[in-house]
Amino acid sequence: MITFDGVTKRYADGTVAVDDLSLEVPNGAITVFVGPSGCGKTTSLRMINRMIDPTEGRILLDGKDVTTVDPATLRRGIGYVIQQAGLFPHRRIVDNIATVPFLLGWDKKKARDRAMELLERVGLDPKMARRYPFQLSGGQQQRVGVARALAADPPVLLMDEPFSAVDPIVRTSLQEELLRLQSELHKTIVFVTHDIDEAVKLGDTVAVLRVGGKLAQVAAPADLLSDPADDFVREFLGRDRGIRRLGFVPAKNLALDPAPEGVTPEGHGTFNPARDSLRAALDASLLSPDGLAVAVDDDGRVLGVVGQAALVGAARG
């Protein structure tokens, strides 16, 4: 667990980047820091691995004040991924990934083996290992960045807008990849972004910061969307909050009616109650001429239907 305890950062020129931040980042989950440009997200993140030291307050990593730990030692135990990937241009991909194992003095072969394993883990072709960073696309470089951060298997991962420099399609696939990795690895991740959609998609918890470095709200994504703490958060969340919130409500509790004669998945929108959200069910209903969303199981068998009135009722809670 990472604990921010009354943390303030005032830069030499007087700028208050982070103002009295108190927050707990739970282990094994993704906590997203989100907010407009200049609200102190990067500063907050960098205080965790001591690239910046707080002016006031303390940051505890599993109960231990980080300022009592030697910075280099601390950092080797914390993965770090940034926007431009920050790969070393003069090192081959495999050696980029093995950076921290090398620093930790692992045997060369063991470090490279580990790097190869991670290369595959993040979905890259092992052929890429011998390339240099400039021979990779932006999305591939980001994957290498993630692999490098994971190389020494640190319990904590800090990610500063890691996916914001790639195009939307690549971004989506990187996000899914991260969620897939996290479901296997259960790291303690602090993820910084200015994109609220990314925040609600990835975060188990979302912390919204406002300019001036003040914490506006900390909540699970669904709660954030349904109960913004104030006008700033409401405005930051943007439009369609109601619809977007439905994305976090599982469809499995919907009461299904028996499918009327002649209603088939063809010509109707469908959803899978076992894995889809209420948002998907509503979307399915909007795609059907008669307004009936057809529930199907993994094998495509029809389980029943649900009408728009029932969906709206479920959406109200």
């Binding site: 950092r75 920050g86 070393f88």
Partner: peptide
């Protein structure tokens, strides 16, 4: 590049 230097620092 600054991001390369920063990431070197962050790697330890």
């Amino acid at each position: 590049p600054d991001h390369v230097r920063q990431s070197a620092v962050a790697m330890g």
